[in-house]
């Protein structure tokens, strides 16, 4: 004779940890989503109306002075490279960024295209964070291996594939592929489990 089993209502330690991680992730993603949206709107607005503000943001008076100093005395550059190579890399990055946006200041006709591309990338990245938030929200509710999560994982993978493809970033493309495969595997496993449940 079998005795009826009553399912345990007390969540296990791992379950509690998953829920906690889900709650933390959800808060982080919500913050990132709000902050990211505001940042994207500001950035697109700045690119469209006053790209010189982004140039100034990258080339602060201190950096401008430093670059001018290197131009006057190239020996200083070699010395700086030996002393602070990371700092020089940062300076070079900001100079390259400033050059990029200076082109928009000089050629206003290019602004529309830049806004469109940056907007598309920004929306995709925000979409990625939105999907990530959905995943964490499911974790916060204690749902880990579900069909919804498998679908979200696949969508995350597809988003990363598009972002990586647009930016020609191999690392992002590989991560996207991995997420896509993970989501697909989870979906197949769930389908097998559902079928197995019908074998009596």
């Amino acid at each position: 004779m079998s005795t009826p089993e009553t399912p345990s209502t007390t969540p296990s330690l791992i379950d509690r940890r998953i829920r906690l991680a889900g709650k933390i992730g959800r808060v982080l993603c919500t913050t990132l989503l709000l902050g990211g949206t505001l940042l994207l709107l500001w950035f697109l607005g700045a690119v469209a109306t006053q790209p010189e503000a982004i140039v100034k943001l990258n080339l602060t008076p201190d950096r401008q002075e430093q670059i001018a100093g290197f131009k006057r005395e190239p020996a200083k550059l070699a010395e700086f490279l030996q002393r602070q190579p990371e700092e020089l890399m940062t300076l070079a990055y900001h100079q390259a960024e400033a050059n990029k946006y200076q082109a928009l200041v000089d050629l206003p006709s290019k602004r529309g295209g830049t806004v469109a591309v940056a907007g598309l990338l920004g929306v995709l990245v925000l979409g990625f964070v939105w999907l990530l938030r959905q995943l964490f929200a499911a974790f916060a509710d204690g749902q880990v291996i579900t069909a919804d999560n498998a679908r979200t994982l696949r969508r995350l993978g597809i988003t990363l594939l598009i972002v990586g493809g647009l930016g020609l970033n191999v690392g992002v493309i590989i991560t996207g592929l991995l997420l896509l495969i993970l989501g697909w595997n989870l979906q197949q496993a769930l389908a097998l489990q559902a079928e197995q449940a019908l074998v009596i």
């Binding site: 004779m1 079928e195 019908l198 074998v199 009596i200």
Partner: peptide, 19 residues
């Protein structure tokens, strides 16, 4: 010793296989 739920699946013809 089979759960009522599983027997119900069997009885209603929803089962895919029987061991």
């Amino acid at each position: 010793g089979i759960t009522l739920a599983n027997l119900s699946v069997l009885k209603t013809g929803k089962a895919k296989a029987i061991r």
